[in-house]
């Protein structure tokens, strides 16, 4: 593990650097989400086992009766097959799915994916290890040991994850967010008092953007209250006291995002991780 001088942020993100020196952040899946995926997997897996076993047993029982075999030879063979199915469900289901695709059906539904700690897909070796050690994680019952180890691990790893060197992340949704549009559009008179170049630092920009995206879901009073947390400082900086706080933020954001690069004064807050905050110069 690479030693970093900066204190990593207390968060459920894990940073992975690629050979192209691009840093991704994967969101580590929490225990609740993983528990739900597990329950779903058990449900799917044993539903299939029960369905197949029922068919097998009914067919073999009918077979036994039709050949007039009182000892039920066919039926007993069916029982044997059922036991093998149970074995495969217990030891094979997670191994095969995770080895092939890195995700079981339950994980797929909950948008989880198993990766190595280096952010690569796992193979059959890691899948075998993490799912064999499941037997230890589920001790003494209901995954108590696994949950305990997970809660002590910064990356929510259970024993199986620790041995196999894997993490479970929430799959990133690749979606284009709609850009923030100024509505209603700026009136020429309205922007007269604003400077031509508005520069916002990354934190200010992120905060305003988040606010503008949520604005529609907020009541006007609450929006006003939130906007007032930052608007006065900006109003002072750009001598623009005549606007309502929320509108001022929207106008400033619009100006800033249409003026190309938005290099602003570095925020006074200490940005510990240098993912996007570091100056490119």
């Amino acid at each position: 593990m690479r030693a970093s001088e900066a204190v990593p942020p207390l968060d459920t993100l894990v940073e992975i650097e690629t050979p192209e020196h691009i840093v991704f952040r994967h969101r580590i899946a929490g225990p609740t989400r993983r528990l739900l995926a597990l329950l779903l997997d058990l449900l799917i897996c044993y539903a299939v086992v029960i369905a197949v076993a029922l068919v097998v047993l009914v067919v073999t029982a009918a077979g036994s009766i039709s050949v007039g075999d009182e000892v039920g030879g066919f039926f007993k063979a069916g029982l044997g097959l059922t036991l093998i199915l149970l074995f495969l469900a217990q030891w094979g289901y997670f191994f095969v799915f995770e080895g092939l695709t890195g995700r079981t059906p339950g994980k797929r539904v909950l948008a989880l994916r198993v990766l190595t700690v280096h952010g690569r897909p796992i193979g059959f070796g890691a899948a075998a290890l993490r799912n064999l050690v499941r037997a230890a994680d589920s001790l003494p019952s209901a995954y108590v040991l696994g949950a305990l180890v997970m809660s002590l691990s910064p990356r929510f790893q259970r024993l199986g994850d620790l041995v196999a060197g894997t993490i479970v992340v929430v799959d990133q949704e690749v979606k284009v967010a709609r850009p923030v549009v100024l509505s209603p559009p700026a009136h020429p008179q309205e922007v007269e008092g604003l400077p031509e170049h508005v520069t916002l630092d990354a934190d200010e920009r992120a905060a305003i953007e988040l606010f503008l995206r949520r604005q529609d879901t907020l009541g006007p009073a609450r929006a006003d209250e939130l906007a007032r947390m930052i608007a006065p400082q900006l109003a002072a900086r750009y001598q623009a006291a005549a606007y309502s706080p929320a509108r001022l933020l929207a106008l400033l954001y619009d100006r800033a995002s249409h003026a190309g690069r938005n290099e602003g004064p570095v925020s006074s807050r200490n940005r510990a991780h240098s993912g996007g905050g570091a100056s490119w110069r």
């Binding site: 991704f24 990133q172 709609r178 850009p179 953007e209 988040l210």
Partner: peptide
């Protein structure tokens, strides 16, 4: 996009796409 401080959704989108392509 990160250096130019483009908007967060754009950066997130690019990051997600790059991560998926990396995988």
């Amino acid at each position: 996009a990160q250096a130019a401080r483009y908007s967060a959704p754009l950066v997130d989108y690019l990051q997600g796409l790059a991560a998926a392509a990396h995988t």
